Computed example of a mutant assay.
Amino acid sequence: MTARETVRAYHEARFRGDVDAAAQQLAEPFSFRSPFITSTDPAGHLAGLPGFVQVVTGVDLISELYGDSEATLVYDVHTATPAGTQRTAEHFRLEDDKITSILLIFDAAPWLPMSGQIT
């Protein structure tokens, strides 16, 4: 698989709420980092996915950039929360057709009032 195929499979599965399909794209070892959450394993990273996708009302992909072993997606996540629409950048590292790390970048300020509910 190419980096594009792997990352798009993960991205699409995640926003469908398909934990198993998203997990299939992740390597061991794996690391995830965002303004609120850090995880060092696929299960920990995906644990909050079902709750998150319940508040997502849509996703608009703005840009996709791919290399042999990395990718960056920029997209808007529309939510049914006070945060509204969240512009997001996500950087992926890949090895052997699996995602080894994800760095999720977004403005956390709109989410601060809800931060106690984010796990």
Rank of each mutant, 00 (worst) to 15 (best):
M1S: 14
A3E: 03
A3H: 02
E5P: 00
H11E: 08
H11C: 00
H11G: 01
E12Y: 00
A13F: 03
A13W: 04
A13E: 00
F15S: 06
R16F: 01
G17W: 04
D20L: 12
D20Q: 15
A22C: 04
A23V: 01
Q24N: 05
Q25K: 14
L26T: 06
L26E: 08
A27I: 08
E28F: 06
P29I: 05
P29C: 04
F30P: 10
S31K: 11
F32S: 07
F32I: 03
R33H: 13
R33P: 02
R33W: 00
S34G: 12
P35M: 11
P35W: 09
F36W: 11
T38F: 01
S39L: 06
S39G: 12
T40E: 12
T40Y: 03
D41G: 03
A43Q: 14
G44C: 02
A47M: 07
G48T: 13
G48C: 06
G48S: 14
Q54H: 02
V55Q: 07
V56F: 01
T57D: 08
T57P: 02
G58I: 00
V59F: 04
V59M: 09
I62S: 02
S63P: 00
L65F: 12
Y66H: 13
G67W: 13
S69H: 15
S69E: 15
E70S: 15
A71Q: 09
L73P: 06
V74M: 12
Y75W: 05
Y75A: 01
H78A: 15
A80K: 13
T81C: 03
P82Q: 09
A83L: 12
A83R: 08
G84T: 08
G84D: 05
Q86E: 06
R87L: 10
E90V: 11
F92T: 04
E95G: 11
D96W: 00
D97Y: 01
D97C: 06
I99P: 07
I99G: 08
I99N: 08
I102F: 10
L103F: 07
I105N: 04
I105G: 03
I105F: 11
F106H: 07
D107R: 03
P110I: 07
L112A: 07
L112Y: 04
P113W: 10
M114D: 08
S115F: 10
G116I: 01
G116E: 04
G116T: 05
Q117V: 07
I118W: 02
I118T: 04
I118L: 15
T119L: 00
T119R: 14
